[in-house]
């Protein structure tokens, strides 16, 4: 690491743009996304399928190329060092050592042919140049830390010997074995049962504090965000539409999409004893984006002209960023409620 890493943020993403070739032409899946994550913080990127949140996470460490994607613009600086444009070999030393990963489906990330102990030890040996014996000891230690009972024994088991929740723990042990400074977790609890999810989140929070890690956590679930995040980035149709510290975001969502997502949660309806409010229509396809604000066809507050013509810029508002020209006006509840909601469910793709 250079001396710059002392002051530089742990992760600084600027204007990141990722494109994929398709039969319909080149599509932009991540559109000038910027955010900063400091050490020891948890940043959640929340969005629905197709928002670009997962591609954002994968592209940070060069994992979109194998899927046909390309970073066409922007910068990703990890502890002050640029990652975009680095050779695969040099990225390999960063991945797994300084940056750990957890994915949604642990079974596809673990090799079924090796014991879990071997897989963790292998990573430790490669990145930490540890001896066979030390690497194995580290594997057992990590399995113990993520709460696998009789870890020394279980280290000799193969992935299929573990339940879904246990496999995700093994994945966490694997991701954290080299004491990474940054953990990227892409929907790590989505495939788990809720009771197992609750426990996995507790474990991640504990390990994050103990290891002073920065965590970039990708999720579609605002409930999970409320549980784990310090800061939140909301993505819609490849763009950041809102960014704010977690309490501000939930107390006063500034973008109608964020507010809509919150109101669409069954828990919100039950907590407030109100009917569930859906967001009408569907997420636009990346090759058929609406003009103006990309959310305007689904937004109850969209105004012709102002919201429908020119692209809307992300701008500073209070302690966050928002991509909505009407954000200030909509704070006045009388103005916000005066408008009728669009007709539900008739929007074609």
């Amino acid at each position: 690491m250079t001396t710059a890493s002392k002051q530089a943020p742990l992760l600084q993403v600027e204007d990141l743009t990722v494109q994929f070739p398709t039969p319909d032409g080149l599509i932009t899946v991540v559109d000038r996304v910027s955010f900063t994550l400091d050490a020891n913080r948890v940043l959640c990127i929340v969005g629905e399928s197709g928002s670009g949140k997962s591609v954002t996470a994968l592209s940070l460490v060069g994992l979109v190329q194998s899927r046909g994607g390309r970073i066409s613009a922007g910068s990703v600086r990890f502890a002050g060092e640029e990652l975009v444009g680095r050779a695969e070999k040099s990225l390999n030393t960063v991945r797994g050592r300084d940056i750990g990963f957890i994915f949604q489906e642990p079974m596809s990330s673990l090799n079924p042919a090796f014991t879990v102990g071997d897989q963790i030890a292998e990573v430790v040996r490669r990145h930490r140049k540890a001896s066979r014996r030390h690497a194995w000891a580290r594997a057992v230690e990590m399995l113990d830390r993520v709460g696998i009972a009789s870890a020394a024994q279980r280290a000799k088991d193969y992935p299929h010997h573990f339940s879904g929740g246990m496999r995700q723990r093994v994945m966490i042990a694997l991701a954290l074995a080299c004491d990474p400074k940054l953990l990227i977790a892409d929907e790590p609890t989505t495939a788990l049962d809720v009771t197992i999810q609750a426990r996995t989140l507790e474990l991640l929070k504990t390990l994050q504090r103990e290891q002073d890690m920065g965590v970039l956590f990708i999720t579609h679930d605002l409930g999970v965000v409320a549980d784990i995040a310090d800061d939140v980035v909301v993505m819609y149709a490849s763009q950041v539409v809102e960014q704010a510290p977690v309490r501000e975001l939930f107390r006063r969502p500034q973008h109608p999409y964020t507010a809509g997502l919150l109101a669409a949660m069954p828990q919100s309806a039950l907590e407030n004893n109100t009917p569930l409010v859906g967001i009408p229509g569907v997420v636009p396809q990346p090759h058929r984006l609406p003009s103006g604000c990309r959310f305007h066809p689904r937004c109850a507050h969209a105004q012709p002209g102002r919201c429908t013509t020119d692209p809307i810029q992300l701008r500073l508002l209070d302690r966050g960023l928002v991509r909505c020209v009407r954000a200030e006006e909509l704070r006045d509840p009388s103005a916000a409620q005066a408008e009728p909601a669009p007709i539900e469910g008739v929007t074609a793709q």
């Binding site: 629905e48 399928s49 579609h220 679930d221 605002l222 809509g260 997502l261 109101a263 669409a264 949660m265 069954p266 569930l276 409010v277 859906g278 967001i279 009408p280 569907v282 997420v283 689904r298 539900e344 469910g345």
Partner: peptide, 9 residues
């Protein structure tokens, strides 16, 4: 997705 889920509910 949440927004669609609420529509179907």
């Amino acid at each position: 997705d949440v927004s669609t889920q609420s529509q179907i509910v």
